[in-house]
Design a protein around this nucleic acid. Sequence first.
DNA 1: AAGCAACGCAACCGCAGAAGC
DNA 2: TGCTTCTGCGGTTGCGTTGCT
Length: 254
Amino acid sequence: MGRQPCCDKLGVKKGPWTAEEDKKLINFILTNGQCCWRAVPKLAGLRRCGKSCRLRWTNYLRPDLKRGLLNQPEEQLVIDLHARLGNRWSKIASKLPGRTDNEIKNHWNTHIKKKLIKMGIDPVTHQPLNNVEKDPKKSQSEQTEEKHPQLLAADAPFASSKETSYSPADQNSSSDDNNLYENDPLISCLFRDDPLMMDFPWEFPSSEEGLATFSASSWDPSCQWLLDCQDFGVHDFGFECFNDFGVGANRERE
DNA sequence: AAGCAACGCAACCGCAGAAGC
DNA sequence: TGCTTCTGCGGTTGCGTTGCT
């Protein structure tokens, strides 16, 4: 039987996205919202597979994305979360507003991993490299707190405290993550299921009226990228695609 | 200046689970 | 209930950039 490929390989473009393709995709999503990804390339006039479109949007074009390297608190949070959740990048990413799983995964593999190894910490187990197999029965979180004093301490705003009792992620990984940090107000805030303020409702209205409403009322400082665009080169495909939605008007007001 | 190696990031691939019928 | 389709996730690869010799 076999699984149908997500797109027919023939005639589907691969590789880096061009500014023109980005423009088409942004234009389409701002106009129609995120609908069936499989249909997006066809409707948007792209010779890409839906999967590729989704990836491009979620990892690069989404306006609520932060650009640039992870800062210290974010990095610390990633380490902390990784110690508890393992390579569940999407889970980790969901706790870092504006960051994608891909970004975090890349950052982990290129930066954090090395840092930990340099510090003599196994990035997989979060235990000292020379002590990895000493106490396999100890819970991962217990070990993490022991092994990351320098990470969990002063320079780590998200660091766990001794008062905080965490459930070891690997013992009960299916348990509700909310319980993990219930004693830590900041972390528990991050672990809430309800949307944080940065969760932007990417359900764009499709009618003109709706779009007008969107542009007038939903403009948010987090969308400043549309104006600044210095971080990822929106210049390359111009602003025309946003003008229809009142972004230009917002800009003029400033 | 040229060649090479290492690095970092964007993108692809394949699988698993969810959703729909 | 089982099959099909779609989406999302994590691992991996490819390539452009940067730094070193």
